[in-house]
């Protein structure tokens, strides 16, 4: 029987992008979009898993699923280039699905139709940083999940031992039976760069475009603000004791980072 691995992908601003406002909205002129970096670990893990299973004589297909505007197809193509087999693009040019609730509704609907044996996703998207969509998709699919996985080791045909990163450098270790959803953290693997044959093959792989299903957003963003630009350095003068005390005070009271 053929096995199907789903990978949830998001098309997000490159982390080097400068976020600026244009009126009340985020100014997208200078923003470059890329595959969400955590999703790349998910893709790599899907490919590694496929390779493993194919060696074991299985037929395996990796399907990338991406919700976003037309331009988001680039991220699917980039995923194809490293080895994802086909893609489903949930088209949302009007930005109706903007929060974890609506996005997870739409993704879950498509995933349900595909009947995946295994789903990988990044632990969070670096634009909305909600850290929630994948878990919510799993829940809607009634599929167990383990999030923030930094190690995945297949112990049997359908079961894996996974390590989940939690606070303080600690790890929780679980065994998971398929079907299941895993979200990838940095460290899960080393992602590969696309080969040129891969890039060429990518343009020929199939993207199925589907309309955004009926979704209910949970919230809207009512106004944005940007943190103040880094100003001139504040040099702290005085005796070392005074300098140290003043720096601690400033970090606590002014910068509020401690």
């Amino acid at each position: 029987m053929a096995l199907k691995i789903g990978v949830l992908l998001k098309h997000v601003p490159d982390t080097n992008s400068r976020i600026q406002l244009k009126g009340e909205m985020i100014d997208e002129t200078d923003i470059k979009y890329v595959i969400n970096p955590y999703d790349e670990f998910a893709i790599e893990e899907a490919i590694k898993t496929k390779d493993l299973w194919v060696k074991g004589g299985e037929q395996v297909e990796i399907v990338g699923i991406c919700l976003g505007p037309t331009a988001a197809q680039k991220s699917l193509r980039d995923a194809f280039a490293v080895g994802v087999d086909r893609g489903i693009h949930i088209l949302d040019n009007d930005k109706k699905a903007i929060d974890a609730r609506s996005v997870s509704q739409a993704l879950a609907k498509v995933c349900a139709e595909e009947k995946f044996n295994l789903i990988f996703a990044g632990k969070q998207a670096v634009d909305t940083d909600a850290h929630a969509v994948a878990q919510m998709v799993a829940e809607r699919l009634k599929m167990p999940h383990i999030a923030v996985v930094s190690k995945c080791e297949w112990t049997g045909a359908t079961s894996a031992k996974v390590e989940r990163d939690i606070e303080g450098g600690m790890k929780e270790i679980y065994t998971v039976k398929m079907p299941a959803l895993l979200t990838a953290n940095k460290g899960l693997n080393k992602m590969r760069l696309a080969s040129l044959p891969g890039i060429r093959a990518a343009s020929k792989k199939e993207i199925k475009e589907v309309p955004l299903p009926e979704v209910k957003a949970g919230y809207k963003v009512k106004g944005w603000s940007l943190p103040p630009e880094r100003g001139k350095v504040k040099l702290i003068e005085g005796e070392p004791e005074k300098q140290a005390a003043e720096l601690v005070r400033l970090l606590h009271e002014e910068a509020k980072v401690v």
Partner: peptide
């Protein structure tokens, strides 16, 4: 809290209850 536990479990509950979620 937006902790390892809170981020995971409350997201799961938000889906189970189909409730809006504002995380972190």
């Amino acid at each position: 809290n937006a902790s390892s536990l809170g981020k995971d479990l409350i997201a799961k509950m938000a889906a189970r209850l189909d409730a809006p979620l504002a995380a972190d």
